[in-house]
Each structure stands twice: as structure tokens, then as C-alpha cells.
Design a protein around this nucleic acid. Structure first.
Lengths: 338, 338
DNA sequence: CTGAAAGCGCTTACAG
DNA sequence: CTGAAAGCGCTTACAG
């Protein structure tokens, strides 16, 4: 029962069956081409009989457009990036583009990854949780492929960036905690080479030091994961002068911290310790957490991203878009005391 | 300050600068080609000077291999699929392949989506949360592109499938609930055209009816989301003869149900009502939930998937891989009473 | 090992 | 509107 394997029909085969030129076949499948309805109909009929599917590769070779956008996403453990991926894919598909996903591992794989991205001749590159070097950014610029970072800023690298106002976000977080009566602070951080992480921390400290002695703030690295936040919280809450306020630089760490504090230490949130995070991931809304947070406006950021990658001429003057931070107050923080 | 835009260097430009043929340039970049180290070195030097990046499009046109795998993923709201995506991307990249993501919307977009997939000349198609018609499967078969469904079976469609043993999973779930003393059951379901969902339900009922009158089971559709599970749980628990056991056909719905039951109805889990789900998503492990569940072995499924798409000749005899169901007992169910 | 030539499947000026 | 021809940037028999 060997099944015959018809070679994939190409435009030549369709042209022959339809009795037209291959140019006519091409025109029948390129919207807006000048072709008579009669000719087009004959082409479609032949194409249908042969199960013809146009070859995007050959087309892209000529048009220099692949309708492929590369997305670099190193950290898939944070739900924030799943949300970004889902939203970006949805919006890009509406414009006829698809996402080619790259999940580089280790810190040194980024440039090598970008090299591969360029081989695919993508129309644009979106960097959501990754880094590229100045040299590679220059290479993209020379090749005229737009690069946008979302949720991150790469200082000194000439690419577009779209992100939230991390400085102000940090300030708002600190303000809320102070207004709720917080005086002893714990902070769960992540890698400080991530500008968003670093800036949130700067924003927090700028406000805290107006009211408290920031040398007393207990800091632990939570590795940007639920488990990391869980462990960091245990360490912080075990310190002699137990904090009454815990700020986590991402929501996913805050969820881990909340769970450690409530279920392992048996403390009450926010009565014993107020907790907040950053990003407003879907999980933070869930009834089990009701986490107060600073929202990262994913939707609007992605709209900006799409606008930026659509304009190839703009790469000479990279844009830095900064979205306002928005405080979302839920149940994990204490009410403001006058 | 207009920057000059050097045209992207092609193999001809590299060949000219290196003083060799374009065939030599090609050989320098294709591993295993017969080329002398001296020639290769000259090519690399010229390539470096020109920032040359090989064009995968042109290469793929000849080799008929794009190193692109299409992944159809309609439902990005279930963390299970984020986990599948992350794992698949990691594993595929290790073999030099990238995922081209397709997130079709609406039930009728699937075939149209597949048409687009074929235009990209992908090496294989993975269907994780989507459906294709028998006609389109036939088209893929004729074009010799492997198709694998993961976590789902499409009856009557000749493609590979990798999935958990949903029937036995359902049976194990029911057994555990009964062994814990459960007698009044609630069930939160999803679309019954999903075979996995339907089979889990069949497996559950097959066991339940050996012990209880299954006509009394209260059933609600949870739309496969957290919010859907939340709302369905409120309805079910509001019924006159309140269930003491609630089985949710996916974890994400079970989390919503748990939250509704604990925080909106003020009931205790598992004392007032035992709850369990299916899939074992990361969230189910979190201390806030500790959800008993039937694991979907994502990792192994993806290993099978990769094996299946690597063998183009196997499509004539589609394989159906069924992984054993594994019960993960946590704190949301009652201990077994002898 | 090396190069000249053919060709992958298309699109696009260019004539008509 | 339509077709013949050139060409996108590569790889791969084929000779040497």
C-alpha cells in the first residue's frame, strides 16, 4: 500500500495545466496584480486540481519580505512573557506576520542566537527577555532590520525600546507601603543588569530614604522565579528585625513570597507583613493572592512595538517609549493610614 | 547625518573579495563540505569584513529544508500550553530548528491557518491546541510534511498523535475521590469535541457508576479557564445536594474552582469538598493550591513529538502514542479511608 | 579540492 | 491585460 507521492506542484505546473504563463500564476496569487478575472479563474482551478500552495521562500527571496518577526524570549518561566508572547502573536497575525521564536539559553548565547535570526531574513526582531551586544545591534542596523526591546532598555544599544516607567513604578510602590504604615522593609530583587529591575529598585529607594533609614532594608535575590521568591522570603522574614513590608520586583516572585510567608511561616498578609509586586500578571488577580502590584501595560506596549517594527526607516533614530506606571491596589497591602 | 546603508552582502560579494568561486563560499558555510582549510579561512575573512550572513531562504529553496517547525496553539490562556511551548522550543532549538507560532482564532480559522503554514514550507507541523480537517491532513500527507498532535487526538485524521491516557487518568481520579469517601460528585468540563476532555469524562464515569448513581453528578462547563472554573464551581456548589467531591477536567479550572469555593463560599478544601484536576501545571504545585491532579507528562510527550517529526517517511503509518497517566496526590483531596 | 553551470520557485520590469 | 526573460541567493551534480 505505498502511496504515490506527487511532487509538490509549483507555478510552472499550474501554468501548464491552466495554459498560461508562470507570470500569470504569480499575478493570480499576488493581491492587486493586474490580471483579468477569466485568467485568474483558470489559474485557481488548475491550482485547486494540483493542490498548489505558493512557496513563500521563493517569493521572499525576491520581495525581501518574509512576514516573519523573530522574538527572543530567554525566560519562559515568568507568566508575564507568556502573556506578551500570546498578545504579540495575536496582533502580528492580524497583520499577516508570524512569530519565529528564539529561546536562547545562558547569557553568552544571545549574539549567536541573533546571528541565526538574521539568517532567517526576518522582517524585524523583538527582544522581550534577552540581551544583544552593541556590535550585533549595529549589524541589524546596517542590514536595515528593525529591533525593539519590550519591557527592557539596553543602555548604549541603538535599538527601539518600549517599557514601563520603572522609576516611577518603584516610587509608587514605596509610597503605598509607607502610607500603609510600613517602616521595616524587605526587598526581593533579580539580576541587576536588567534595567527594569535596577530602575524599580532605584525608584523604591529614592522614596524610602525620605522616610526611613534604607541601610536597614533587607535584600535578597529571588532569581525572578516563584521558587526564588519563596526562598528569599524565608530568609528575609527570618532576620532579627522582621520586616513589616516586603516589595518584590516581579509578581511571580511575590506570589512565591506570599505562599512562603502564609503557609510556611504562618504569618498573615497584610496584617503581619504587606507584600507587593510588579507586572500585574494574571495570577496576581486570582483570589488566592489578590496581590497589590504595579501594572506593566502589556497591550499598549505591544501596540507600540508593532508600530515601531513596521517602520524600517526609523532605525536611525531609535525611539524610547516609556509607559506610565499604574498602581493596582488589592488585598496584599495595608490600607493607607492618614 | 544620514548613515550609508550597505546592501546586504551576498555570497557573490564574499567570493569576489576572497578571490574564490561562490561555490567555495557555499562550501565554507555548509558543514561537512569538502573545502581546504586555506580556502575556508579566506572565505571567513572576507565574510567577516562584509558582515556576511548566509541567506537561509535561498538555501532552503534548494535543500527543501527550512529548519522551521510550525506550532498551532489556539489557547494560550492555559499555562499547560505555555509549558509545552517552552519545552518544545528548547528541545527543537537544540537540534537547530525554530518554532514558527500560529495562534488561529475561532474554530473555522484552523484550515486557513494551515494553508498559511504550508506556504512557509515548514519541515513539520505540531498541533497543540487546535484542530485540522481530514482534507488538510491529506494535503500535508501528500506534501510529505509530518503532522503531530500533542495532548489531543483527532479521530479519523491520519496524523501522528502523542497524548496521555485520558481514560485511565479519569479512572484514577474517580478512584481516588471514591476512596476518600466521596459520594456526591460535581464535574467541571470543557468542550466535548476535545477528545482528551471527553475521554477523561468517560473514564471518570466508568468508575463512578460502579459505586454511585451517576445521574446525580452535577455537571458544569468551565470553558477551560480559571474564570470559567470559578463560575462553574459557584453554580455546582449552590445546588441543593451540595457535592462533597469536585473533579475538574483541567487544572486551570480547578484553581478557579478552589478559589471560588474557599474565598467566595467560605468552604474548606478538602474537608467540605475535595477537588482535583488534570495536567499538573506549575501553579498546581504552589502552596496556595497544592492541587491533587493527574499529570500530563509534557516532557516525554515532546520527546516523542520530536522523534515523530524527524521521520518523514513515517507519515504513511501514523503513530498514536499514549503515555500512562500518573496520579499526583497533594492536599486538595481527602486521604484514603479504608 | 575547486569552479562553471544549472536550477530551486518565484516576482517584476519590460515589451507588446 | 499578458508573456518572455532576467534574476533573487544560494546548493549541487559534474568535470577537472
Amino acid at each position: 500500500m505505498t502511496r504515490e507521492r506527487p511532487a509538490r506542484a509549483n507555478s510552472t505546473a499550474v501554468a501548464r495545466l491552466a495554459g498560461v504563463s508562470i507570470a500569470a500564476v504569480s499575478r493570480a496569487f499576488v493581491p492587486g496584480s493586474s490580471i483579468s478575472p477569466e485568467l485568474a479563474a483558470r489559474v485557481y482551478e488548475a491550482a485547486r486540481q494540483l493542490n498548489y500552495v505558493p512557496n513563500n521562500l521563493a517569493r521572499s527571496l525576491i520581495t525581501r519580505q518574509t512576514n516573519i518577526v523573530a522574538l527572543m524570549l530567554a525566560d519562559m518561566t515568568n507568566p508575564l512573557f507568556s502573556e506578551i508572547l500570546a498578545e504579540a502573536s495575536r496582533k502580528l497575525e492580524a497583520t499577516g506576520k508570524q512569530i519565529l521564536l528564539f529561546t536562547p539559553e545562558g547569557t553568552q548565547g544571545f549574539d549567536q542566537c541573533l546571528q541565526r535570526i538574521l539568517e532567517y531574513q526576518v522582517d524585524a526582531i523583538v527582544i522581550a527577555a534577552a540581551t544583544i551586544s552593541s556590535r550585533m545591534a549595529r549589524l541589524c542596523l546596517d542590514r536595515n532590520v528593525p529591533v525593539v526591546t519590550v519591557g527592557r532598555h539596553l543602555p548604549g544599544i541603538r535599538v527601539h525600546s518600549v517599557r514601563g516607567d520603572a522609576l516611577d513604578g518603584g516610587a509608587q510602590a514605596a509610597d503605598l507601603m509607607l502610607a500603609g504604615g510600613g517602616r521595616r522593609f524587605g526587598l526581593i530583587t533579580g539580576p541587576s543588569d536588567l534595567t527594569t529591575i535596577a530602575e524599580r529598585q532605584v525608584g523604591i529607594f529614592a522614596r524610602l530614604k525620605q522616610t526611613i533609614d534604607t541601610d536597614q532594608v533587607v535584600i535578597e535575590d529571588g532569581r525572578l522565579t516563584y521558587d526564588g521568591g519563596y526562598e528569599a522570603a524565608l530568609k528575609i522574614m527570618g532576620s532579627p528585625d522582621r520586616p513589616d513590608s516586603l516589595i518584590c520586583l516581579t509578581d511571580i516572585m511575590a506570589l512565591g513570597a506570599m505562599d512562603a510567608i502564609r503557609f510556611e511561616l504562618g504569618l498573615k498578609v497584610p496584617e503581619d507583613v504587606a507584600i507587593m509586586g510588579f507586572d500585574d500578571i494574571a495570577e496576581s488577580r486570582q483570589a488566592s493572592y489578590q496581590l497589590t502590584t504595579i501594572r506593566t501595560p502589556t497591550r499598549q506596549m505591544i501596540e507600540h512595538m508593532i508600530r515601531l517594527i513596521s517602520d524600517r526607516t526609523a532605525m536611525d533614530a531609535p525611539e524610547e517609549i516609556e509607559m506610565p506606571a499604574e498602581l493596582i491596589v488589592r488585598r496584599s497591602t495595608r490600607p493607607i493610614t492618614p
